[in-house]
Design a protein around this nucleic acid. Structure first.
Lengths: 137, 137
DNA sequence: ATAACTGCAAACCGTTTGCAATAAG
DNA sequence: CTTATTGCAAACGGTTTGCAGTTAT
């Protein structure tokens, strides 16, 4: 959380074009989990000439650089969030598509436990919980 | 596990055409998590005139009837498995795409805990863990 | 008989890519 | 100046759909 997305991009030596700066800003300001279409809409408000292909390319670049996390919730389109956001997990309401964020210390432990059990080693702290059929109670 | 897929289909009053019977059989015999293309290949060995559109339609029908579970691992294509298989979870190796099945009693507890915490009610026992970056250790 | 199902091919939707023009370092 | 990046439009891959013909009940 110390550095901005732009700063982290520069740190990694990415060529920061005007388009990339705009997309970085949009992502910086996003408290939700926008998909590419949504990022494109928000970026277009700042620069209406930006193309959706560039958004796709930029988001892929940032993901590969570890600056963004790509979230795939099984609804067809990928969503993105700042990789440096405070750690949390996601629960998707399969009926509404709504994304619920939460933190649970037991999940952290579980990550380790399952990984160990299976002879794998965790890299970082990325765990998604999804597919739980939910009903508001 | 008492009933076969075909029997469960009939129980639900689904019209069982020759194509649907074949797909039910293929699914019955699958110990893995085939995608539609794979189901189509296997079904084609029994009846080469079957069309992939029918496989898509059938798999959707069976999923909506609760006979199949649709698994979306974020690799673009959906995978399917018998909904009545013994309960288990999936872990996907993000590098190889390999699917690892496992059971962990703590996950069962966690399902309840998280759902309660968020004011939701679990329907059944569907929980997928995915997106954990893994490295063989 | 008749309503549901099939195969085919075209459409669809999110994403990627080839290309010629443009801009960053 | 040189190489990376852009916008456009076409292509892509998985999935859905309209239609005319076929099949289960």
């Amino acid at each position: 959380m110390i550095d901005t997305i732009l700063q982290r991009c520069e740190q990694k030596g990415l060529r920061m074009t005007s388009q990339r700066k705009i997309i970085a800003l949009v992502l910086e300001d996003a408290a939700d989990h926008p998909d590419v279409e949504e990022l494109y809409k928000r970026a277009s408000k700042i620069d209406p000439t930006i193309s959706i292909a560039t958004v796709y390319r930029t988001v892929k670049l940032f993901d590969e650089a570890g600056i963004l996390d790509k979230l795939e919730f099984g609804d067809g389109r990928a969503r993105y969030e700042d990789a440096e956001r405070e750690h949390h997990d996601h629960l998707i309401d399969v009926n509404s598509g709504r994304v619920i964020e939460f933190v649970d210390s037991d999940i952290e432990k579980l990550q380790e436990k399952i990984a160990n059990k299976l002879g794998y080693k965790l890299m970082g702290h990325k765990l998604e919980l999804y597919g739980v059929p939910l009903k508001k109670s």
